[in-house]
């Protein structure tokens, strides 16, 4: 009876969420030079992107940064999650609190605090400062993802491995890592997306030597609307979408079973 109202409302909100993205994707294939008039389908703007070596460099930088940040934050985040889950140590609550602070503080607060640190310590603004900053804001998300997986299975399976004669190393290799590997991959992909999507923190800690795509887009869209931006933005959109689909797939397949 009220079904049409229910589905109507849901559809309306989805339309709201997807209309702008759809328009962007559509216009990126617009053959016309006038950004507002549809001139037929064309790969023209993507070809223009491909020929723009500065943009390609920025894209390569972005990927390098995202991959490095995701890898490093997965490594540190996994160790942190294991420590938080399995070890008893002093200041655990404080550590938890600091991770929560990183997750909840507005990006801009994180950005200026890291900028202040880099200036004080004398870190050259560029790849290194970007990497350290990105790892820092990715860290809590990786910790949460891996921690959830670690809590999802009973620690008894680790004890069972030891009970059956496995050394600590063998236990980690044959039981712990295989069981948490989907979370590691999912954490990596989340880190990758977060790094790819960041504008605010990068804006502060970037340097002239290392240009990345989101900042390039930022300087382009502030001024106005250009057809190349449509194609560039679409590429970035699809990249994050691919990473997201991957992480969701990994998290839902192989979800931990409650004992």
């Amino acid at each position: 009876m009220l079904n049409w109202l229910k589905y109507g409302y849901l559809s309306l909100v989805y339309l709201l969420l997807y209309l702008p993205i759809g328009v962007l994707l559509l216009y990126s294939f617009n053959a016309s030079k006038n950004p507002y008039r549809w001139g037929g389908f064309s790969w023209h703007w993507y070809e223009r992107l491909w020929q723009n070596t500065a943009l390609i460099d920025a894209a390569a930088n972005t990927l390098l940064l995202a991959i490095s940040a995701a890898t490093l934050s997965t490594l540190i985040g996994t160790l942190t999650a294991i420590a938080l889950q399995r070890y008893r140590f002093r200041g655990k609550r404080f550590l938890n609190g600091m991770l929560f602070v990183v997750m909840m503080s507005p990006d801009i607060v994180l950005a200026i605090s890291l900028l202040a640190l880099f200036i004080l310590v004398g870190v050259q603004l560029g790849f290194l400062s970007l990497l350290l900053a990105h790892v820092t804001f990715c860290l809590p998300f990786v910790v949460i993802t891996v921690y959830a997986r670690l809590s999802g299975f009973t620690p008894q399976i680790l004890e069972a491995a030891r009970d059956l004669g496995a050394s600590e190393f063998r236990m980690v290799r044959t039981v712990l890592l295989p069981v948490i590997s989907p979370a590691l991959l999912a954490g990596w992909l989340l880190g990758f997306t977060l790094s790819l999507d960041d504008v605010v923190v990068s804006m502060f800690v970037t340097g002239p030597t290392f240009e990345i795509l989101p900042l390039r887009i930022y300087s382009m869209v502030r001024l106005g609307i250009k057809p190349e931006v449509n194609a560039l933005a679409s590429v970035l959109l699809l990249l994050s979408l691919a990473a997201l689909v991957g992480s969701q797939y990994l998290l839902t397949r192989n979800a931990p079973h409650t004992p």
């Binding site: 008894q156 399976i157 069972a160 004669g165 069981v179």
Partner: peptide, 30 residues
């Protein structure tokens, strides 16, 4: 791992990523 004693855990603690055979074989492989 060095004690000639084995445990049946309360929640079974089976390795979720291994088959029944591999679970049972785990101790012998170690």
């Amino acid at each position: 791992s060095q004690r000639p004693v084995n445990t049946v855990f309360q929640s079974y603690a089976l390795f979720p990523h291994m088959s029944v055979f591999d679970n049972v074989a785990y101790g012998l492989r170690a």
